[in-house]
Amino acid sequence: MSAARLPRILSSVMFGALALYLILPMLAVLIYSLARRWTATILPDGYTVQYWISALQDPRLFGAFVRSVVLAGATVAIDVLVVVPATYWAYVRNRRIRIIAEMAAVVPFALPWVAIAFGILLLSGRFAPALLGTPLLLMLAYAAVHFPFLYWAVDGAMAAADVVALSEAAETCGATPLQIIRRVVVPNITGGVVSGGILVFASSFGEFALVQMLVGGSFETVPLWSADALRATLGKFPELAVITFTTFMVLFVLSAILVFGTGAQTIRLLPGARAVEQRR
């Protein structure tokens, strides 16, 4: 074996191991959802689609799924409408806002969920008591605690696209602020908005602590249904596997469509990373 081929083989082995590590759990969930009985053997005793049929026909689970999708989608919409203009303004007009935004982005990770939920309840009770226990409060709370994922992705995309230089160039071309945002800024940060939006959607979809503490069982989402299924006397484990796999596939397909659709290849997901490449 030549020395030149060794790194290629090593990288293929590493990639294969990583793919297996990521795929294997989902594969196990899929097999479990289709298993007639799977206890003490390597593979199930037999296969059936009855759990898929019963799960998909369960109106309670379907309702929880729809509520989760709508809630996560609305959270993404609120965050995009608030975070993108604010980040742009912080970049182009007032760099000092960035310090506030960076600090605010750390809060959801620094404080325990109980403290955040209690704070939201206190604030809502004081200034908007009508919102207490409503899905609207939950939506606003989700937008507030999940915005860092979008902020970091958009911030990275703006840095990579050099929106300051592009905005100034557009301004010297005679463009109005609205024309600059619509024709120049947004098309060049789409990758960041999409990747951040997917993260906000995924984290909102899987949120358990806030929904439990802010609205409880009155607005059942998939995580609440899942917890209930686990607690049931005869645990609905196969149905749980069905909804887990379905949720994963929905997010995976959505991510794939958006990422390939917008041409984004590598997007900054964490603070510190700056690389954003656009496929042309």
Partner: peptide, 29 residues
């Protein structure tokens, strides 16, 4: 405001709009 001044400007980095072809860049103003 800059957009109302009768100027054209070229910066050090050129700042061409990556989402537009050369033709559309030139047409932009």
């Amino acid at each position: 405001p800059t957009r109302e001044r009768p100027i054209g400007m070229v910066s050090q980095s050129y700042a061409l709009f990556p989402n537009m072809t050369l033709r559309n860049n030139i047409a932009f103003p």
